[in-house]
Simulated assay, not measured.
Amino acid sequence: MRKPVSSEGTGSDGTVGMLVCAAQTGALLAGVVVVESGRTDAYGRPPGSALGLVCVLVFAPPLLLLFGAVHTFVMTMPADLLARAALRRADGALWQWQCGSVVALGAVYAAGLAAVGAPFLCSWAWISGSGALPLLAVAWFHRGERRRGRPYSKGDVWFRVLPAGFLLTAAVMAACGAALGTGAVGAYEAPSPTGEAMRGVWVGEDGRAEVRLQADGRAVLSAVPYGDWEEEGRCDGTGTWSYVPEDGAVRGTVGFDLAGEGCPVGPWTVGGTDERLELYDLFGDPDGGAVRVLVRQGPG
């Protein structure tokens, strides 16, 4: 005779799942904020403003709780119910069926995301992983109830989960800070190509701008943006180009001499990767202005 599966709820399983999901997502968000605040982006711009951080602190808690509630409804509770239903008909431990249910549900949701272009395996791993800690927390509260002989109230759940969530967030932030300090998670490093690699056709991401850097030092520009804090224009012109390679922390640049053409195009900075070289320029506020990018397409 099969051992009956305990299906009595705490009356607050949903609260447990919501709070734990919100806590783990908040810890992940805090880690991202620490890393991004400690380094410049790929285009040399400093981290976000203090106002952006204030917005995160104000709006993140209610949004995290909302996300936790949705996640509980579509992931944690269905996985728990499926596992208990399976255990009534088959052998095994509850935690084994819970793991299987999370993985199966993750595959279903990942398939839906893959249908709109997301990578299946990556989505499957993230979705399945997101359900592990909430389910463990539900099981932990169930064991605690059996030990106590009475259910936890929702207040008991909040009192226990919130401090644990703060500790998890603090631990993640400390780990990310240590990773930054030791260089394990470093700032973006721009490539340092040779002058020969800079020759060729560079096309803007908007499809309009084009720069031809020829082997004889001549440059042909079509609809290349230029400007300052207040305005931006487009330049068609010819002239010469020169490449200044990276020097320590100073990134490499490509400068143009278009005298007499009426095109005040300044130097463009080397970015991207060795496999996908870019030239970029910042327009507007240096701390958060627009970035114009040219991508190398091939030889000129």
Rank of each mutant, 00 (worst) to 15 (best):
D156K: 02
V172P: 01
W124N: 02
A174C: 04
G129K: 06
G298M: 08
P299Y: 02
T25F: 12
S242L: 01
V254E: 12
Y152G: 02
E36V: 13
G217W: 08
G48A: 14
V161D: 04
L57A: 15
V224A: 09
R199Y: 00
E196Y: 01
M1S: 12
D41T: 09
M198F: 07
V5R: 11
S153G: 15
V201A: 11
A171I: 02
Y243T: 06
E205F: 01
A30G: 14
E196L: 06
G217F: 09
V74Q: 04
P78T: 03
L279N: 06
L66T: 12
T194R: 12
W140Y: 10
L64C: 07
A22G: 11
P61W: 07
L279F: 10
T182M: 04
P4C: 07
C176F: 07
A187N: 11
L29Q: 09
V102F: 01
T238C: 00
L29K: 02
G262P: 05
A209C: 03
M1Y: 08
G131W: 06
L180A: 05
S222P: 00
W140N: 01
A60R: 06
L135V: 14
L28N: 05
D285T: 03
C263S: 04
G252A: 11
R146L: 14
S153N: 03
F166I: 13
F141E: 01
A107D: 04
F73M: 10
A249R: 13
G260Q: 05
M77W: 12
V211M: 15
V5M: 11
M198Q: 05
A118Q: 14
A90D: 04
R89G: 03
D287K: 12
T240C: 02
C99V: 15
G239M: 06
L28F: 15
R143G: 02
K154F: 00
D257N: 11
T240R: 14
G48D: 14
P61R: 05
F166T: 04
M18N: 01
V35I: 14
E230H: 11
G284R: 03
V211C: 03
Y152P: 00
V201C: 08
P61M: 04
G239C: 07
L180G: 05
A42W: 02
